[in-house]
């Protein structure tokens, strides 16, 4: 917070004398100190509101779904939503409009989008063996949203890129909406924040990795959320072991990154909490209900 305020103040401080040096504010000011530019500065230094976060998430989600649509299986989708919603009820942000979707990709991946939209690939769901493992994966993603990791990343990106055309453009609702092209703008996709989300995807902003320490934070909180929901505490660990045994050969999913901690590193971090993990290890795995739903997946 301190840094943000400092940067904001500096920007304004640097800007004002710059005008003065060119003698007479006159045309220069008229040209540059526009309401639009001031709004951009203000936007960049104002924390995102929850509704902006949700709208930005809608834009990002629309892009993800554009690349990989939902699996057509209502039973599976409703099931994953119930598991995810139950887990999210254990988080600090129970009132977000949490939505969970299984996307039709053979890659093994899961995504959290700002505002509470979570995606898992069919490739990943197929690898899991019980509801507690699914809950562990979803809980890791819920933790990212609950801890506002992406919101903070967006705010930082806006700040650091203030003045740079790419992200400035991303913050510009008009441009973003233009980029929707022939796509009909419906519902909350018409908002400036949704446009920013779409634009941020086009710029690759959301494809950059989070700091590895944030992944560990999300793993720790994820384990806790799943255990609070009553699931056995080793679900996420089981999922990480599955990841750790796979080679990238095949369906490979890959928006992963060089800086992403390896599953083995993540397991080592979680091992520090073995005593707590063991306390909740014998809560239900709920294998049957999971298997039943998966039997209906082609």
């Amino acid at each position: 917070m301190k840094i943000r305020t400092f940067v904001a103040v500096s920007l304004l401080a640097v800007t004002a004398p710059a005008f003065a040096q060119f003698g007479g504010l006159g045309d220069f000011v008229k040209k540059n100190l526009t309401a639009d530019n001031l709004k951009k500065v203000a936007d960049a230094v104002t924390p995102m509101s929850e509704s902006e976060e949700i709208d930005a998430g809608a834009g990002i989600s629309a892009m993800i779904l554009g690349a990989s649509p939902l699996v057509v299986n209502d039973e599976l989708q409703r099931y994953v939503n119930r598991v995810g919603r139950w887990v999210s009820l254990q988080s600090a942000r129970t009132d977000l409009p949490w939505e969970f979707g299984v996307i039709d990709s053979p890659s093994v991946n899961a995504f959290a989008v700002p505002g509470g939209k979570i995606f898992v690939t069919l490739g990943l769901v197929r690898k899991l063996k019980s509801e507690s493992e699914l809950a562990g994966v979803l809980a890791h993603e819920v933790a990212h949203v609950s801890l506002k990791h992406q919101v903070k990343a967006i705010e930082n990106a806006k700040l650091s890129a203030l003045g740079q055309s790419a992200v400035q453009a991303a913050a510009d609702a008009k441009l973003a909406q233009t980029n929707l092209g022939s796509t009909p703008i419906v519902g909350n996709l018409a908002s400036a924040a949704a446009g920013m989300g779409i634009e941020a995807m086009k710029n690759g902003l959301f494809l950059r990795p989070l700091d590895r320490s944030l992944e560990y934070d999300a793993d720790r909180l994820g384990v806790v959320l799943a255990a609070r929901a009553g699931y056995d505490s080793y679900g996420l660990i089981a999922a990480l072991q599955i990841l750790a045994t796979m080679t990238p050969d095949e369906a490979g999913g890959s928006i992963s990154m060089s800086t992403h901690p390896t599953p083995n590193d993540r397991l080592a971090e979680l091992e520090k909490f073995t005593a707590t993990l063991d306390k909740y290890a014998n809560q239900p795995q709920v294998g049957e209900r999971f298997t039943k739903v998966m039997a209906g997946v082609k």
């Binding site: 301190k2 990002i60 959290a112 994966v137 903070k152 959301f206 494809l207 989070l210 080679t247 992963s256």
Partner: peptide, 20 residues
């Protein structure tokens, strides 16, 4: 304040099959 890369999504990471 922590400096982290702008990013977003992900994370259980990726990759594919072949059970080792």
């Amino acid at each position: 304040m922590k400096l982290f890369l702008p990013l977003g999504l992900l994370l259980l990471c990726t990759i594919a099959t072949a059970q080792e």
